[in-house]
Every structure is written in structure tokens, then in C-alpha cells.
């Protein structure tokens, strides 16, 4: 296989693999920009994936599956919001709890309802988000380089993939060009300023947390009814945490998030593709090393060896009025 072919295939697969990261990373971005730390991305995705798998299997509708994913994920987000915002509890602990509850309940209910070892029934293509071929993809294929990129990398994905890539500029626009974005950024930096400006800190944060829920719903639905044809137990497999790493890596900025998620998706794609192939100079790279790379890179970034990643100032701090 020629190098270009390998590169195109790897990139194409990187696009697919980075989609759940993108959704989850943006979810974390909204939440943390408002001052609520979210390590429950994993759990919300998992809950969403399960709901999508169930509802799509029962109704045969991918759209209803997506809706269910969003609702369940919002539900979990609201639990996190209640603990973090209203109860002013420890946000990390709450996130851990969400992950446990989601992991346990999806497997338990999956087994109780479908009896397939935690899997939901195999979905027909009509109940999934299937690949879409963009206009002119076929004729373009023969144009050198650009044509290949268009037809092989840009075209041929499910609707949710495009949604993820649209969500990035949209988030940027919301954050920096709208009233909501201004207030969101403010509430994560200095909630006191927002409160004294007559804006409810709690309601701002709840809205951010709900948006995080919606986005994690998308991420979950993508996993179970777009990328796969059904839910399987613990199918998020740590993607929520990679998304969290990507968020840190992206320094809590939307455009950087695209780069970070794509990088981590690409590393994943390379790891899958390269399994067992020897590289020049370094020889065969163990697949585990490739898997660990996103985390190692994030640690190095956090340590300030390559730039500095500083979280929103009020991130993780419950808001109480000062006396």
C-alpha cells in the first residue's frame, strides 16, 4: 500500500475516532468554562450510548435514539449539577459517582431488559446514522490529492460526524460573540462579578451543565448508533477521560479542542493501523505505548514543559456569596 493511501485511510479513521472526543471535549468545555469540573463525561456518554441503543432498537428510529441519548445524558448532567451547584458538593466526587452509576446501571438494565450480556440488540441500518456520500464525491475521486481528500476523508461519514465538526466553530461563536458566551466565560472566572451584575450564577451554571449533557448525548449516540450497531457494556472505554485530557490539552479553548481531539483520534487510528508493523529507526512501537500517548502528552503539557494550560479561575469552586 502506498504511503498516500495509508495516510488517507488513517486520517479518515482518525476523523471517525475523534468525533466522540470532540463532542465530549466540548461538553467539558461548556461545563468547565462555567466553573463546574466534569470528570463524569465518561458516564454521561455511556448513559447516552445505552439510551440510544435501547430506543433505536425498540423504535427503529435513529432520531428517537439520539433524542433518548440526549435526555438521559441531560438527566445525569442535572444530577451532577444538583450536587455541584445547588449542594455545593465536591465536583470531582460527583463526577466519579456519575461514572459508577452509569457503568453499573447500563450493564444491569441492559442485561435485565435484553439478556445479551449487557448488549442491546443489533441495529439494522435503518435505525442507525449511516454514512452519507457528499455531492460529487465520486467524480472528484480522480482529482489528485484534493479529490482524494474530499471523497475519502471529508465525504462518507454519518450526519453526527458533520455535526461534531460544526459544533466547534459554533461553540467558538457562542463563547465569544454572544451574550450567553460572555456570561459563561465570566461565571467560570469570577462568579461574584456575574452575581453582582444581577445574573444568577446557579442558572448560568445549570445551563452550561445541561449543554454538556446534550453534547455527551450526541457523543454517546454516535458510539452506539452511528459508529456501531448497538450498545455494548462499557463501550466508552475511557473516551470520556481522553476527552478530558484533550480539554486540558486544548487549554479550554474551542478551536484548540479541534486540534487536540483530532490529534488524539489520529494517535488512536495510527495505533490500530500500525499494530505489528515496524517503523524505521524505532522499530515496532508497542500498541500500549500508542494508547498511553495522549495521557503522557497531557501530563507533559500540564507540567508546563510545552506551554502552560491554566484552567478557568473558578473551575471546581462552588459559589457562595462572600460575607
Amino acid at each position: 500500500m502506498d504511503f498516500l493511501q495509508t495516510l488517507i485511510l488513517t486520517t479518515d479513521s482518525a476523523v471517525r475516532l475523534s468525533v466522540p472526543l470532540l463532542f465530549a471535549c466540548l461538553a467539558g468545555l461548556y461545563s468547565e468554562r462555567s466553573g463546574v469540573v466534569d470528570i463524569g463525561l465518561e458516564g454521561k456518554m455511556l448513559g447516552g450510548a445505552f439510551a440510544a441503543g435501547c430506543v433505536a432498537a425498540i423504535t427503529g428510529s435513529a432520531w428517537l435514539g439520539l433524542l433518548a441519548a440526549i435526555l438521559v445524558s441531560i438527566g445525569l448532567a442535572l444530577v451532577h449539577g444538583y450536587a455541584s451547584i445547588t449542594q455545593r458538593g465536591n465536583q470531582i466526587v460527583s463526577g466519579v459517582a456519575i461514572n459508577f452509576v452509569a457503568s453499573g446501571l447500563t450493564a444491569l438494565l441492559g442485561q435485565a431488559w435484553f439478556g445479551r450480556g449487557g448488549k442491546t440488540p443489533q441495529l439494522p441500518n435503518t435505525a442507525r446514522f449511516t454514512e452519507i456520500t457528499l455531492p460529487f464525491a465520486e467524480p472528484m475521486r480522480n482529482v489528485p490529492v484534493i479529490g482524494r481528500i474530499y471523497s475519502d476523508i471529508i465525504s462518507g461519514h454519518s450526519l453526527l460526524v458533520y455535526a461534531a465538526f460544526i459544533a466547534i466553530p459554533l461553540t467558538w461563536w457562542i463563547l465569544y460573540r454572544t451574550r450567553f458566551g460572555l456570561r459563561l466565560r465570566a461565571v467560570g472566572e469570577n462568579p461574584g462579578a456575574v452575581d453582582t451584575a444581577g445574573i444568577s450564577v446557579a442558572w448560568m451554571r445549570y445551563r452550561a451543565v445541561i449543554i454538556a449533557g446534550i453534547l455527551c448525548g450526541f457523543a454517546g449516540a454516535y458510539l452506539s448508533i452511528a459508529q456501531s450497531a448497538g450498545f455494548s457494556k462499557d463501550m466508552t472505554a475511557g473516551k470520556g477521560f481522553i476527552a478530558l485530557a484533550a480539554l486540558v490539552f486544548a487549554k479550554w479553548k474551542p478551536l484548540n479542542a479541534l486540534g487536540a481531539c483530532f490529534l488524539f483520534g489520529f494517535l488512536d487510528a495510527v495505533a490500530i493501523r500500525m499494530q505489528g508493523t515496524a517503523l524505521p529507526v524505532v522499530g515496532e512501537v508497542p500498541v500500549q505505548a500508542m494508547q498511553a500517548l495522549p495521557y503522557i502528552l497531557t501530563v507533559i503539557l500540564l507540567a508546563g514543559f510545552i506551554g502552560k494550560s491554566i484552567p478557568p479561575k473558578a473551575d471546581g469552586v462552588p459559589y457562595t456569596k462572600e460575607r
Binding site: 450536587a83 466519579v96 459517582a97 456519575i98 459508577f100 452509576v101 457503568s103
Partner: peptide, 17 residues
């Protein structure tokens, strides 16, 4: 898996809330 859920709930109620 029920036990994992219960653990999660205990963490939630005894910890975060």
C-alpha cells in the same frame, strides 16, 4: 453491575451530596 451502581450512588449521596 448492581453493586457498581450502588457504589456510585453511595459515592454520590455520601460524597458529593
Amino acid at each position: 453491575d448492581m453493586i457498581i451502581s450502588i457504589q456510585g450512588l453511595v459515592i454520590l449521596f455520601a460524597g458529593a451530596m
